[in-house]
Computed example of a mutant assay.
Amino acid sequence: MTIHTETDVKLERFTNTRTGGTVNKMYYPINLNQLIELIQTLKKDNRKFEVLGDMTNVAIASGQLDFDVINMSKYCVSEPTLINNRELVVGAGYKMINLAYWSVKHKLSGLAWMEGIPGTVGAGIFMNAGFLFGQDIQTFLLEVKFLNLDTMQVETLKNADLKFRYRFSVLQEMNVIILEGRFLMNKIPNTFKGNLRYIKQMILLHKYHKRRSRNQPLDLPSAGTTFVPPTPWHVGGMLRELKLVGYSMGGAQISEKSPGFIVGVSNMTGEDYRNLVLFIQERIQDEYNLKLVPEVRMLGFKK
């Protein structure tokens, strides 16, 4: 089966930030054979490429970009597989929001918090997506299967070897493409108490949806929270102290609703987003002697 390919793709059509210039080609592999064949061809032709999913957490430079895109949003998106009522195998391209509803529908508890996380399971594993401790990938993931791009072999790492911390996994330091995750689940029994637990999970889905709508600027382009929280400090609080809430550079603005977000208010470009990131980092460094680390991937910019 031929890999679906688009040419002269404007990435601003796909990214949540509505930023990004044009790539020559974007590929949509749907299985492992297609993925391996594609990468071997790109390597043979000395083509640079970036691996992306739903592009919810990226800001990308404008203009003609010097890389192709392997889009994993259609990779193994068939329904998750439950093994022995305990282990859930999920393809990298499956959306986390969809997984939240799927798990509750099939009377599995634990993943309702994913309702508030945009993006795919693969991206979620890569960055240890989540909210609070206990509501994150590292709490439920047993192991991850990935393609090692150096050896072109499929490998597996257990949870303990992934070196999870806030918005980090060791996968970020490796040359890999995530293929699937295996999660440890709790099956809700068909009993009176089990039915109460099921109702509680449904209530949690509604709660997380309302929390996201209430606290996040979902009506504007953004990549979610911009920086890794420098515990115990709070980025939004520091920006309020510095009276920078609402501050803009080009079309990028420090969100008035949630200052931890950078939002697009007037045709924001990737350069606008990046410039505002650099400005915030400089001000926080000067005022608080703290080095902020972006959560958002910024691609295609000149050093």
Rank of each mutant, 00 (worst) to 15 (best):
R167S: 04
L82V: 08
L141T: 02
S73A: 14
G63M: 04
L141W: 00
K163A: 14
L52R: 04
G124A: 05
R240N: 13
Q34P: 05
E271N: 11
Q135M: 07
G116V: 00
C76R: 12
A61R: 11
G246N: 10
S109Q: 09
D161F: 01
S103W: 00
D161M: 04
R240H: 09
E79D: 14
P232K: 09
E271W: 01
E180S: 12
N16G: 14
M152Q: 11
K257S: 04
G236L: 10
V121L: 10
V293T: 12
G91S: 13
D161V: 00
E87N: 11
R13W: 06
D45G: 01
D150C: 06
E50L: 10
M298T: 03
V51C: 11
V121R: 06
I97Y: 06
E12K: 13
A112F: 09
D8Q: 08
N159W: 01
M268G: 07
F168R: 07
L52E: 05
N16D: 02
A160T: 10
V69S: 14
R214M: 08
G63A: 09
W102Y: 15
T81S: 14
R167I: 09
L65P: 09
G53S: 15
K302F: 04
K187P: 02
V245E: 15
D66T: 06
E180P: 02
L292F: 09
V265H: 07
E87R: 03
G122S: 00
K25Q: 06
S248H: 08
K303T: 00
Y27K: 08
G53Q: 01
N186H: 12
V77D: 00
E6Q: 11
L292E: 00
K44Y: 12
L290G: 02
V265M: 08
I137L: 02
L239W: 05
V69Q: 13
M72Q: 05
K163R: 08
G236E: 06
A92K: 03
E50M: 11
H206G: 10
Y75L: 01
V277D: 07
F67Y: 15
L111M: 10
R182Y: 01
I30M: 13
M174K: 15
N215M: 12
G124V: 04
N31C: 06
P189R: 11
Y28H: 07
I97V: 14
F131P: 00
F301Q: 09
H209L: 11
L278A: 06
K210A: 11
E295I: 08
Y27L: 11
I178E: 11
P29A: 09
T120R: 00
G237N: 15
K48F: 03
N71Q: 09
N175G: 02
G264R: 09
T5A: 05
I39P: 13
F279K: 12
E155P: 06
V265T: 12
L88M: 05
I280L: 03
T2F: 04
G181H: 05
G264V: 03
G246H: 01
L65M: 07
F131L: 04
P189M: 06
L278F: 01
L82H: 03
L196G: 07
E282Q: 12
F126I: 02
K74N: 14
S103N: 02
A223Q: 05
M72C: 08
M114N: 06
Q138K: 15
A252C: 13
V90K: 02
L205K: 07
A100P: 13
L132D: 10
E79K: 13
V176Q: 03
Q40K: 15
N289V: 07
N31Y: 05
T41G: 06
